[in-house]
Design a protein around this nucleic acid. Structure first.
Lengths: 231, 231
DNA sequence: TGCCTCACTTTTGTATACTGAGTTTAGGTG
DNA sequence: CACCTAAACTCAGTATACAAAAGTGAGGCA
């Protein structure tokens, strides 16, 4: 675990001076893991982290517990924690589960989406198209997230929304495995457009189908890339 | 918060002398909350709990954090934590979500259940019938849980299994609202039998329908009772 | 040389101490 | 008597200290 990785923590700290340290550390470490700046297998020693992040073990522990609960880090055989390795099986399980949940969320959204929500989704699509054309990948990634969040919100089921939003971050970790080209991004955009189209028509079945297909495509892209690396 | 509530913690401790204190405390408090021995609104003060459970604040905190994450306890405005109140909206969201997930789990189980798994489910059914006839409610409750867990396991999706198992405990809390009579228990048993029947036939659609119906019936029972108390 | 043991190191689990923010309460003032 | 203010109190956030378990390695013995 290299020290430089943690260089930008002070900046992170500045974001919200009222947030408890444990939440800062949690979010920060989570980001590092999901973006794979902290590689799978990296060991996480409470005291080391404390030194590097200028905090005592107590808030560090609480952050680690939360990450452990989420499944992002695992008990190291013998002693200590380490960043979890991704297993194909777990990834497939998660994709399958998300396919169902996204489908359900889309169904609900199609049933109850308001004009404002539809407009919001539409404008997010436009922005994404703009970003893809300009190859602004980071912004596209954030918009992609916002798009899905908007759907979850439109489903009006808070539990579902929270759950999918957590899973979505997790899938981000898998997404980092495959390379997104302008071509695949355009394909994804088209899937999004189909979904919004279904919402506009309040066609629940179509919404469910297109949403499920969207996740399924992501799953296939992940698996293809996995096969390349693990063959 | 009455002291007597915590009387049986030492016995709980004996269960597994190798389990860390934080997990003991977590499980113990969770049990108290789910069985409503700790009522919604009860305040949870770290130092008090520490004194009553003969532990220091550190493991108590970690247990509380976990419960908070699960949504069983909430940050009290201003100061401290308290056992969460149940809101009808949240309950309905959760039931709706569980309906989908149970349906999906049942579909997977129907597709892939082995003979052993079917036999296991069958014998659980028999045991439950036995308990209902003898009015052994506590044992029935545990068997009911085992029955659902067996289905989750048969779905072969570990993520889904974990998720539903957590939610199932949570629904237990809702279940404590409505009174189970021999009549309703028999009705539930019948629903279970229909599900197993569908698994035996490997009829995925039927399995999904019966499972969804099962949760839906529970939801209706909860709502009816809620209406009685909050009218 | 190979293996066993025991001391040492590492790292977590738990306890305790300190701090500061927010609440309550008591005393003073108009 | 109402209201304001400040001291005291509560309680969570954080830091630190100590204990215990589990790995690690060096020295001794067969």
């Amino acid at each position: 675990m290299k020290k430089e990785i943690f260089q930008d923590f002070p900046a992170f700290l500045g974001k919200d001076p009222f947030m408890p340290m444990r939440d800062m550390i949690y979010q920060y470490l989570r980001e590092l893991i999901i973006t794979r700046q902290l590689e799978p297998g990296s060991r996480l020693v409470e005291e080391d982290l404390g030194e590097k992040l200028h905090a005592s073990r107590t808030p560090i522990r609480e952050a680690l517990r939360k990450l452990e609960l989420e499944g992002l880090i695992k008990q190291h055989k013998g002693r200590g924690l380490e960043v979890g390795e991704i297993s194909l099986e777990d990834a497939m399980d998660l994709y399958a589960l998300c396919t169902e949940l996204e489908g359900y969320a889309a169904r609900l959204a199609a049933a109850t989406a308001t004009e404002e929500e539809l407009a919001e989704l539409g404008s997010l699509l436009d922005e994404m198209e703009f970003c893809i054309d300009r190859n602004e990948k980071e912004r596209e990634r954030i918009l992609h997230r916002s798009f899905h969040m908007a759907i979850y919100k439109a489903s009006k089921n808070k539990r579902l929304s929270k759950l999918l939003s957590d899973y979505n971050d997790y899938l981000q970790l898998f997404r980092s495995y495959y390379i997104s080209t302008p071509h695949t991004l355009h394909q994804t955009l088209e899937e999004h457009q189909q979904m919004v189209e279904a919402f506009r028509k309040h066609d629940e079945d179509l919404a469910e189908r297109t949403a499920k297909n969207h996740i399924h495509m992501a799953q296939k892209a992940f698996q293809a890339q996995w096969d390349v690396y693990n063959k």
